[in-house]
Amino acid sequence: MQGRIIKSLAGFYYVETANGDIYQTRARGNFRKKGQTPYVGDWVDFSAEEQSEGYILAIYDRKNSLVRPPIVNIDQAVVIMSAKEPDFNSNLLDRFLVLLEHKKIQPIVFISKLDLLSSRAQMDDIRTHYEQIGYKICYSLEELLPLLVEKITVFMGQTGVGKSTLLNKIAPDLRIETGEISETLGRGRHTTRAVSFYSVHGGKIADTPGFSSLDYEVDNAEDLNEAFPEFRKLSHSCKFRSCTHTHEPSCAIKQALEEKQLWKVRYDNYLQFLSEIENRREIYKKTIKRK
């Protein structure tokens, strides 16, 4: 039989078939020998006899994956950013977007706490810039809900942006405690850690932890360039194939910036991320030399 893992708990994997039946399974020992671990979102072959525990027999190739928590084969991610308390932070949003672009996961940005703004003018301007790049920006639940249909969606956001509040509105049955660690989603201090998909609005959703900081796997200028869609399109016109868009002559990105075809905020964030990558490389080189 074939199905998708929709829940992982205490060594058990719950597999849902195309007709909606759910089977409790375990992973055979040969997966450990191969260094493989089944994750929520995996498409698998499994055996399941009546009134007995099933076993996962094979794991299909994954199109993408996240580490915290381990979820694979994700269609899209809703990044929740607050307009106020904490203030909107384009640098943090771009870190999320770089991660998602690198992972080939479609981003959707949801702006929370708009009611705390005295004026939306600045936020509307920011929204316009991101939409011009090609990102979907949602101000309301009415804009967001249709995007969840027939999709596997994860929710992510910095602690304090209202992620639990939003999830409670989308799926009241989850009863997530706002401002606290989610017991329902298996991250209470004294609960067994569970990773699960929940069927909501014609699709499946999964929560991810809040972040106070975000590490991403991009560790070179080429991948960073690819993670900025507007740079990716223009960089083919750069004189040098390995252009970092910093000091090289005949750089299409810098030219577009001068002609105000690119948003300077994004370019400044790109430069900061590039600097962080280069600094990490220098630290790594020094560490290697010491050894």
Rank of each mutant, 00 (worst) to 15 (best):
G202M: 06
D207K: 01
E85Q: 15
E177Q: 14
I176K: 01
Y139I: 06
V195Y: 02
I152S: 15
T178N: 14
L174H: 02
R187W: 02
T165M: 07
V218C: 11
L141H: 07
S164H: 10
I126C: 00
P107K: 07
T192C: 04
K104T: 13
I176S: 12
D87W: 00
H129R: 13
P146R: 08
L97K: 06
I170P: 03
E101G: 08
R120K: 13
E177R: 12
K151G: 06
I111C: 04
T128Q: 10
L145Y: 06
L174M: 15
G179C: 03
S118C: 00
A171Y: 14
D215I: 01
V109P: 05
G162D: 12
R127Y: 00
L214M: 06
N91W: 04
A206M: 06
G160L: 09
Q132M: 12
I111A: 01
K151W: 04
G210I: 09
Y130I: 09
Q122Y: 08
Q122F: 10
P209M: 05
R127D: 03
L141Y: 05
V98A: 07
F96W: 15
M123I: 14
H129F: 01
L99D: 03
S119P: 06
V154A: 09
V98F: 02
H129T: 03
S196H: 01
P209K: 02
I205Q: 06
